[in-house]
Every structure is written in structure tokens, then in C-alpha cells.
Amino acid sequence: MTTYLDCNATTPIAPEVAQIVTKYLFEEYGNAGSRTHEFGVNAKQAVELARKSVASVVDADKSEVTFTSGATESNNIAILGLNSFAKTANKKHIITTCIEHKAVLEPIMELEKQGFDVTYIEPSQTGLISPESLKSALRDDTVLVSIMHINNETGCIQDITAFCDVLNESEAYFHVDAAQSFGKYSKYLQNKRIDMISVSGHKIYAPKGVGALITRKRGFKKVPLQPLMYGGGQEKGLRPGTLPVALIAGLGESARLSLSHSEQWQEHCQKLKNKAVEELSCFNIQVNGDNTSASVLNFSIPGLNSEAALVALKGVIAVSNGSACTSSSYTPSHVLTAMQLDDERIDSAIRMSWCYMTKELPLEEMKERISKFL
């Protein structure tokens, strides 16, 4: 039986979450916008309970949570939604990094086409962004800083707290793509200097197709975002459309579970990781990235191309050699390339990612299969 080790692409749905989703699909199927009958009222209550649960994870107010279809949409709203404000305020400089997810880089590139000036900070070979590089990039006309918390390919954990310290004297809005850290390393996201946080349901045991954008107020002022779509006025007009109550209820339940169990889950994941590094060291693996998440191991095996490794491990583990969002592309990883790793190391890179539901890794069988290709 193949062991699923591609949780950075998507996690399994937690049983408790599946139960909640099923309830709101088949039993409480009302529209949260229908206020004249109990089905609509019950749906509305489920949405608001989920809103409170999502907010609690990062110590935000529930009024600061906007439900979306996922982190990609949240990223687009956070970035493109500042377009009008930036032009009016004559602040058209954006800071991001070379290792962001495409859901951040591509919206920023769209603004760049419209005349925005963008600074792309490069990581060190460790995959980490230095606070000093952010400080040196800041300008008076910087309107937005967008830096992910945990990289989806390497698992590198960026020093969000240090970035917040750098930005304390700046008016620039700070957006964090937290798709890989919300519900896992959430305490760092509780820093009030973070203005916007993007959340993805299917990275934390909730269904695909739901996420959130958390937008903190500065004092009593909201982040000056403009909607990308119009019609209906749902979610205070920022993200119109009939709310997918079942999916939102599932996200709320996964947020509640993560708030209660994340430390225990991370301890389990770290034990799996330590064992994997120990057992695979016989192949002189090169771990790509420092200060990495407990649930991710991106590594290269000298002399073994990643495509060959995937063939060797087929039927044993389900893994990735890059981001699922760019799996149709055979171009080298932009993340590992930005880290200035050599071509052979990049071509050999494999990403394994697991979760609290992963009982163990089939390391002996992996070693046996890999040995036959070396």
C-alpha cells in the first residue's frame, strides 16, 4: 500500500471535519443569506461559529475574517485589492521575495505591468530571508510587503517576528501567505503587526475550495482593500457570492482542532522527520533548507535524478519533486534556483511532507528501492 507523503500539496480531511461537512451538505443545507427560516438561520450560525474559530487561531477578531475559496484567492485580494489605494496615495512600491508561491508572485507581476516598482528579495542558500535585507529594501513609498511564513517546497520557516520588528516604523501593509503555517505554527501569526494573513483549508485537514483572508485593523482603520468581484455584497462586500456553508463549517472545525492539538501533532511529525533524516543519511542526502517545518523534508540524493527516484519509489510513497501548483511545468524549481543550489542538486530534489495522520514512514522499503537505482 502506498504511503501518502504529499501533505504540503493537500492534507487528508480529518474525520471530525468530514462529519461536520456532511452534516451541512445533507441535513443543514440552508443558505446563510436566507434569514426568514430556520435553515438559513442555522447556516448563518455555522458560518459565524467558523469565523470565530478561524480568528481564534491567530488571536484576531471574528469581524476580521473573510471567507474565500482558498489561499490563492486570499493572496490575490490582499495584493490586487490594494491597487486603487496605492495609486491614490502615490505609493507604488512592493517588496516580496523570490521564493514566494506563484499565487503571490503572479498577482504582483500583474501590478508590475501596471507600473508598480517591485523589489524581489533573494534568500540565502539556507532558503531563509534576512531581516536586514527587508530593512534595506524598505522605502517611503512602499505600500506592501508580502512574505510567506513557511515555504511550500522546502518547509523553511521565515522569521516573521523579526520582519514585524523591522516594519514597526513603516506604514507599509504586511501580508503573510500562511497556507503552510496556519494551524501549525500559529503563535507567530498572532503578532498584531501582520495586517493580512492568507489561509488555505485543504492544508489543515479541511476540504479543498475554502480558505480565508484575515485583515487586521490598525486602530479602527481597515486595510483599504477593494474587491476583485462584485455582486451580492456577501462578506461585507469584499468577497461576494453565496457562502459554501459546509466547506466553511469544515474549515472552522479544522481550526478548532488545530488550536487544541497542534503542539502534539508537531511533536509527532518531528519524530517522523528525525527518523527519516537518520535512516536516509546512508545515501549522503543533502537537506535543502534550514529551520524547516516538522512535517517537511526536501532533500537531494547525489547521483539520483528526482524523476528516477519517483519511478523507484512508485507504489511505496506518494511524493513530489516540486510544487503541486506547477506540476505541469518541467522547469526547475524557482525556489531552489533562487537559493543558488547547483543544477544537479536541484534536479535530484524530492519533497516528502506528512501530517499527524501519518503513522510511520516506510523507510526500509524506500532504502531498498533507492539502492537499486544507485
Rank of each mutant, 00 (worst) to 15 (best):
Q234Y: 12
R239F: 10
V223N: 15
A276F: 00
S258Q: 13
Y230P: 00
V199A: 03
D195K: 13
P207I: 00
K221W: 04
Y205M: 11
Q234H: 12
K208L: 06
Q264L: 13
W265G: 01
Q270V: 02
V210A: 05
H268E: 05
G250L: 11
L238C: 12
L247V: 02
R193Y: 05
V199C: 06
A246C: 04
T215M: 08
A255F: 05
I197H: 08
S295M: 14
Q286S: 07
C269Q: 12
M229F: 12
V199Y: 05
G289R: 01
D290F: 05
H268C: 01
V223R: 14
M229P: 00
E267G: 01
V287S: 03
Q234R: 12
Q270H: 03
I204G: 04
L213R: 05
I197R: 03
I248V: 11
S198H: 04
V296M: 14
N291K: 07
N298G: 05
A276C: 06
V199W: 06
G201W: 01
V245P: 00
I248H: 00
G209Q: 04
F283G: 11
P207N: 02
R193C: 11
K236L: 09
C269I: 06
S262R: 14
G211Q: 02
E253W: 01
S260K: 15
G232L: 13
A206D: 05
I197C: 07
M196D: 12
V277F: 00
G201H: 03
R218N: 12
F220S: 15
P240K: 11
I194M: 15
P240T: 13
T215H: 01
N284F: 12
S262H: 14
K208P: 01
G250T: 11
C269F: 07
Y230T: 08
K271S: 04
E263F: 07
M196W: 12
K217M: 12
K271F: 00
G289E: 01
N274Y: 00
A206F: 08
